[in-house]
Write a protein that binds this DNA or RNA. Structure first.
Lengths: 241, 241
DNA sequence: CAGTATCCGATGCGATACTG
DNA sequence: CAGTATCGCATCGGATACTG
């Protein structure tokens, strides 16, 4: 499919031809994470133009990695991974673990914008670990220069996590005040919640139980078996350059 | 390093940023295969411009994947993988196996030029399986329109395989007459030698022992544990499109 | 919601020639 | 052998606006 095939006799190189075009891997990762809708994928990966996403999805469909399922009645379209894409999981897992151990913390943790981060948070709150009632968690980011610096995660029993950028008309159970880099680092297991609290980069208040069990209801990546992950500096090193 | 980082919170995506730039994976694969010299890498991957190869090697060095070792006395430079690059092996192996099972045969086997193929053959003759004397194997390709269609692989006990494009001044032990696609298919285990002989796409003559034991001294990839590799068509299907 | 259409700019990359 | 230097095109992809 690429305009200029390598023309090599090498399976890895052929895999590269499939996976190299920009955004291909992020799209597959997003599908892996459970997104199936065009705009969910867009939001999940943050910055792709709709034209390019459309093009990539068509290419993936043509290569048999993605199946497009249209529900004419509902007017919806879902994109699902085929078995062929699912079979990439071992490779992607290996890549992920390699990156965790070999990409410098400052690169791995560098900016994604806050709204993308919060959108991602939808999948990082373990609803089963929340009490069986409505829960509202406020995230306030102290980074300077943010357009929106406060978001709310809303849980209603039985439903998914909803992220709001306007204050909901409910009582707030937990207040999280932090820097972007701290929250990202926690999600990627380049630090822990208690370590960030000690470092003064994360503050919790509100419901006693929920604040004390945040490490239970906040799902991080599963990299605990890996050796040699570079942790976030404490205190935070100034960005180079 | 890429001009436009994805800015995502996702290890796979960060790995992608490192491995995506064109020729990066082929270079690493070539290093994996044992090449250490600038021009060996060039020939091994076939078509990269020296400027771009130089650039990529510098990038890989900057990312800690490659170590450049200069021998001022000898005037040589070797490029070696660092541990960080070696740690990519599980991911690359997984990618390779995925490609073997999921890239259509016609794509996987499509043209690389004959000289690159023969250069690759250096690593595919198992010298330990050859008799303890000088051996010359002639490869004649029947594909139409080849500039050079005949090559010789020369083995001298204790030495490496040398590939010549002019007829060596020695007796020829084995004559291999075949099409490019057959030889490539054998190397990638999308067929077997006997299958190609039966299909009339491969002819062997010369030394009785060597012709009969070609499957021993010709090293193929190690994919025998994989299920579902698509074999080369017999008879050969016409190229689509 | 699920895309198309268009435009334009940067730069990645290939080709070729040349050097120490 | 191990690269640099230069050039120029193509295309990839980002931004924006618009549609059914």
């Amino acid at each position: 499919m690429p305009a200029k095939p390598y023309g090599m006799i090498c399976p890895i190189t052929h895999a590269a031809e499939v996976l190299e075009p920009r955004w291909t891997l992020p799209i597959l990762t997003e599908l892996w994470g459970g997104s199936t809708r065009f705009n969910d994928i867009r939001r999940g990966i943050g910055n792709i133009s709709p034209a390019l996403l459309s093009k990539r999805l068509k290419e993936l469909e043509a290569m048999g990695l993605v199946e497009r399922i249209e529900d004419r009645a509902a007017g919806t379209v879902d994109y699902l991974r085929t078995q062929r894409a699912i079979d990439l999981e071992p490779a992607l897992t290996a890549l992920s673990e390699w990156a965790q151990c070999n990409i410098k913390a400052r690169v791995a943790l560098c900016d994604s914008d806050v709204s993308t981060l919060m959108w991602k948070m939808r999948n990082h709150v373990i609803t089963e670990e929340l009490p069986n009632r409505q829960v509202v968690i406020q995230f306030h980011f102290t980074d300077p220069g943010l357009l929106y610096d406060t978001y709310w995660a809303l849980y209603r029993p039985g439903g998914p996590i909803e992220i709001c950028s306007t204050i909901p008309d409910f009582d707030i159970d937990v207040y999280v005040e932090t820097e972007k880099v701290s929250l990202v680092s926690v999600l990627l297991m380049r630090t822990t919640i208690s370590r960030e609290i000690e470092a003064g980069r994360l503050f919790l208040s509100g419901d006693a139980v929920l604040t004390r069990t945040m490490d239970r209801w906040l799902k991080t990546g599963d990299y605990s078996h890996l050796q040699g992950i570079e942790l976030l500096d404490t205190p935070l090193a100034p960005a180079a350059e």
